[in-house]
Design a protein around this nucleic acid. Structure first.
Length: 106
DNA sequence: AAGGTGACTCAGG
DNA sequence: GCCTGAGCCACCT
């Protein structure tokens, strides 16, 4: 699950990813991502992680809208247009790994 | 050890 | 767009 949290941390400002994206990237079930977020999400940019419909659970939408506004994400309808802000999770993790290599290489 | 639950997702109707 | 059913797997009774 460390991988999950790391993946979420890699999501850049103004971008979003779906639980399923993370799930497939780190190779676990989508529900596990949700479970992890519930326990450790408070320590990562959880608002950049939404479900496949671009929505969040009721108790979070309010916070999320505020944070999204700060990131320049404009909600559409009940959630956000995931397709408009979706980040390439796989690419992000690759970038992160390469960054680590660069650091050690130097 | 077995069964229920969940910040989910996908395919079908 | 909405509802159902099945798959998912870590965690908790």
């Amino acid at each position: 699950m460390e991988r999950v949290l790391r993946a979420v941390e890699q999501v850049p400002r103004g971008r979003l990813v779906a639980y399923g994206d993370i799930a497939r990237t780190v190779g676990i079930g989508a529900r596990q991502v949700g479970w992890i977020m519930r326990h450790w999400g408070s320590n990562v940019p959880w608002w950049r992680v939404v479900n496949a419909s671009g929505q969040l659970p009721e108790h979070l939408v309010d916070e999320a809208h505020t944070l999204w506004a700060q990131e320049g994400i404009v909600p559409s309808g009940r959630g956000v247009s995931l397709s408009d802000y979706r980040a390439d999770l796989a690419q992000l993790t690759i970038d992160w790994e390469r960054a680590c290599l660069d650091l050690s290489a130097d």
